[in-house]
């Protein structure tokens, strides 16, 4: 599903964020990406969801080699992915439903299909009772579950989670990982970046470690 060959990402021409990354991630995998702050975890994810393009090397996504794609082509590829952030990136004055509706409309779901799918994922995230609640009235854990629901609403093949438990307490963090595990069990590939080694050590999934832009298995 994802393949990187001798991939480099350099900022400001001299500052390397990723150095000679060679790896392959298969469909249905659950991968933890660990590393200290500033190690390159976010850059790694940004390269995958095409927010950034590699400076050098080859990147394959869903079997296609990524070249210098136009904005719209990258957008179409992004529709196959769901992204979850540490700071949720939700519209705080909109309801959980409206936040999900935004994503459903972007991919062109009909109102009926969007409605059905939104209810389905909110139910899956156990948020059916919060459907019309504005985001600012939800707890941190609930907000993160809405963010995951938004990532799921478009039936993505891949979910990228950038420190999704960074702002949450350990119990809620575990519940978020449990949600991600359930999603993974349905065949969706998950890549989760975190600097919380204790949390990761509780699981037996594949672990990648990133340090100063280099990735180690």
């Amino acid at each position: 599903m994802i393949k990187m060959n001798h991939l480099y990402k350099t900022y400001l021409k001299t500052w390397p964020a990723l150095k000679n990354v060679n790896l392959e991630i298969d469909r249905g995998e659950f991968v933890f990406l660990t590393g200290p702050s500033g190690a390159g975890k976010t850059t790694f994810l940004e390269i995958i969801y095409l927010e950034e393009l590699p400076t050098r090397g080859d990147l394959y996504l869903f079997g296609d080699k990524i070249k210098k794609y136009s904005y719209n082509k990258r957008a179409k590829l992004r529709q196959k992915m769901g992204v979850v952030f540490q700071n949720f990136k939700l519209l705080f004055y909109k309801t959980a439903y409206e936040n999900l509706e935004l994503a459903a409309n972007v991919v062109g779901f009909s109102p009926q299909k969007a409605h059905k799918r939104i209810l389905e994922v909110l139910n899956q995230m156990r948020l059916s009772h919060k459907i019309n609640t504005p985001i600012y009235q939800l707890s941190g854990g609930e907000q993160q579950r809405v963010a995951i629901a938004r990532a799921l609403v478009t039936h993505p093949d891949l979910i990228l989670a950038d420190e999704p438990t960074g702002n949450l307490d350990p119990a809620i963090s575990k519940s978020i990982i449990k949600v991600l595990e359930q999603i993974n069990a349905r065949g969706t590939t998950i890549i989760m970046a975190t600097h919380d080694y204790d949390l990761v050590n509780n699981y037996s999934y594949r672990k990648l470690h990133i340090s100063k832009g280099k990735i180690y298995e």
Partner: peptide, 12 residues
Amino acid sequence: EIMEIVGGTKTY
């Protein structure tokens, strides 16, 4: 920003 993340094209 969110529309960009969820795959909105520029036209959209």
